[in-house]
Amino acid sequence: MSVISIRDLNLSVTTGKTTKHILKDVSFDLEAGRITGVAGASGSGKTQTGLAVMGLSPAGAQLSGSIDFDGVELVNMPAKAHNRLRGVQLSMVFQDPASAFHPMLTVGDQITDHLRHHQKVSKREARERAVHILERTKVPHPTEAVGKYPHQFSGGQLQRIAFASAIICDPKVLIADEPTTALDVTVQAGILRLLRELCDDLELAVLLVTHDFGVLSSVADTIVVMKEGVVVEAGDREAVITAPQHEYTRSLIESLPGAEVSQ
């Protein structure tokens, strides 16, 4: 059963007199406990799809179509209602962990901020939850980590903290926008493993946005390929990668360094 069901999603952004169509009739589902990978070159609208689910479309954006979240329509939902979902039921992890945190606040404060806002838990309890959740995402020394500042962590650790922050309110949907692109390849594997674990254990419906087929091949269950705002191909991981139906998908996979594909 799908947690999120996107149907005929259209997004256009008007700046001044020009209107740009960013998404055209995008349809796919996110299912609990499965990672749906969205692939595409920059400008293909893959990030905007994720942002539309979060209700974070840019200013001047017009959305039409449907994003059904457990019976709740997210398209053109009032901002206040979306705010109540965001961070609680819908959460997100961004590409650059270094700029995703406020440099002057402790990590503990930042990952519990929305918890305390939404669930009105006490500061003490929030801290305990923070330690627990950092342990869950395998941040070393979680008890000390909550009192530290972002610059005291490496990029990979910060991304783990970002995941902790994203799951602390027990969301149903996690949107990960290029979560490993800014990281070293040796760190990337660890983050992917974490993502896989969280998805399986917490029954998360994950939307993984990336331009890296290596990442998709490792963790995605379903792959959606986008080009210029249109979904050109969607299917099971293995089918899409080993036997792509659409020419564009094929060209993307062929454009990768030979070593990755052949082995």
């Binding site: 390849v185 040796t186 990337q188 594997a189 660890g190 992917l192 493993r193 896989r196 890296d212 087929f213 290596g214 990442v215 091949s217 490792s218 963790v219 995605a220 269950d221 991981r237 293995e238 089918a239 899409v240 990668i241 080993t242 996979i253 990768l256 070593a259 990755e260 594909v261 082995q263």
Partner: peptide, 18 residues
């Protein structure tokens, strides 16, 4: 060796490297 092992293969097998 560690660097090489960490490269994800595009084989559709769902194996996380490393």
């Amino acid at each position: 060796q560690k660097l090489l092992a960490a490269i994800p293969r595009v084989d559709g097998k769902g194996i996380i490297p490393g």
